[in-house]
């Protein structure tokens, strides 16, 4: 791989998803992340009830992420061939789990802020 710079990665990501969709996803991910940090700072507290629901959603996020990646690439879990494959597989699952948990926690916090 030649010139694996930040600019190259951005250019490749734009080509994978299309420029519009890629930046829309970046903006959405940014909004959710910023909203998550916002509610944490605003509430000055973790709501363990909301966190519980976020945790409950994690396996669904993990399964959905793995299912999506396997589906779009015509592959299955039996194709894992080495340690790096296992790392990528687990990373996809963790990303899906954490992403959905953050989304679920943030939506709950925005819809029902703690009573002052």
């Amino acid at each position: 791989m030649q010139d694996l710079t930040f600019g190259t990665i951005l250019a490749v990501m734009e080509e994978i998803f299309g420029r519009g969709l890629f930046w829309l996803m970046v903006v959405l991910a940014g909004i959710v992340s910023v909203a998550y940090i916002y509610v944490l700072i605003r509430d000055r507290n973790i709501s363990w009830r909301k966190f519980l629901w976020a945790q409950v959603s994690m396996p669904f996020g993990a399964i959905a992420a793995v299912w999506f990646v396997m589906g779009v690439t015509d592959s299955s879990a039996s194709d894992l061939g080495g340690p790096v494959d296992l790392i990528v597989f687990i990373s996809v699952a963790v990303a899906g789990a954490v992403g959905l948990a953050v989304l679920v926690y943030t939506i709950q916090s925005l819809l029902s802020p703690p009573k002052k």
Binding site: T73, S75, D79, G82
Partner: peptide, 11 residues
């Protein structure tokens, strides 16, 4: 490796 297949398919 699966990752090499992913690179061919996706990247």
């Amino acid at each position: 490796l699966w990752i090499s297949w992913l690179m061919k398919e996706v990247a």
